[in-house]
């Protein structure tokens, strides 16, 4: 992993009306890194992810994503090749069978008629089956997505990412609504897949424990600023205590 930076952020500043959400953030992320964003609620984790995904335009500062110029970020199809998102499991279309939710990852490449036809006779079925196999759900191909458990649904979302094959994966609290066993399950699959595909992963998390266990680097945010930015093995307990300290008590 030499110094091939895939994301470069300089003096990034994001404000909503008069409120400042992110103030002068600067960091760079190399290809293949697995970065966890931690910090108390309201620290700006989701805003940062949405900014990286180009949904939010920064008020000041610069965001450079390698291989993606300003024009491209307006083209959702090109953007989708570059960046994939995963949130809580609520971003699946629950009345659809699993296979169509997985194949939705291919929509950026499909034309109108192929997409329509696929709803009747699923296209690129082997691709979907392979992806589901890798997340351990190959027997749920035609199950209605809403009948799956939370952990299973999140694995469907992972299979969709496998089909979409973006270079960067942005995950916003991917395990927030899962119980610990399932959360670990999903995170371990996610980390494994990202490594296998040599993708870059940036995820916001509530749990420091998971951050240290499944990620190579941790960026802590507090009040819209970077509190610390360390490789995960170098994080000490006092860093964390300070990060989550309630304001009035200091």
């Amino acid at each position: 992993m030499a110094s091939e930076n895939i994301i470069e952020v300089q003096k990034l500043h994001v404000g909503f009306e008069r409120k400042i959400a992110l103030s002068s953030l600067s960091f760079s992320i190399q290809k293949g890194e697995r970065v966890a964003l931690i910090g108390p609620s309201g620290a700006g984790k989701t805003t940062l992810l949405n900014t990286l995904a180009t949904f939010i335009t920064p008020t000041e500062g610069e965001l450079q994503i390698t291989g993606l110029n300003h024009q491209d970020s307006k083209n959702r199809k090109k953007l989708a090749k570059k960046i994939g998102m995963i949130r809580q499991q609520f971003d699946l279309v629950s009345p659809l069978p699993v296979i169509h939710n997985v194949l939705a990852g291919r929509l950026a490449d499909w034309g109108f008629f192929k997409s329509l036809f696929s709803l009747l006779v699923p296209q690129e079925k082997t691709l979907a089956m392979k992806a589901l196999d890798r997340v351990g759900l190959k027997d749920k191909l035609y199950a209605r997505t809403s009948t799956l458990s939370g952990g299973e649904q999140q694995r469907v979302a992972l299979a969709r990412l496998l089909v979409q094959k973006p270079e960067i994966i942005l995950a916003d609290e991917p395990v927030a609504s899962l119980d610990p066993a399932r959360a670990e399950d999903v995170l371990s699959i996610l980390a494994k897949l990202v490594t296998e595909e040599n993708q870059t992963l940036i995820a916001s998390l509530h749990s420091v424990e998971y951050a240290k266990k499944y990620f190579t680097r941790v960026i802590a945010l507090r009040d819209g600023e970077i509190f610390f930015d360390l490789p995960s093995e170098k994080i000490e307990d006092q860093n964390l205590a300070a990060l989550y300290e309630l304001k009035g008590k200091s």
């Binding site: 995904a53 959702r76 629950s94 939705a104």
Partner: peptide
């Protein structure tokens, strides 16, 4: 949420 996801994934 699912709709936005589709939109952000280039549909």
């Amino acid at each position: 949420r699912p709709i936005r996801h589709l939109s952000s994934s280039g549909a």
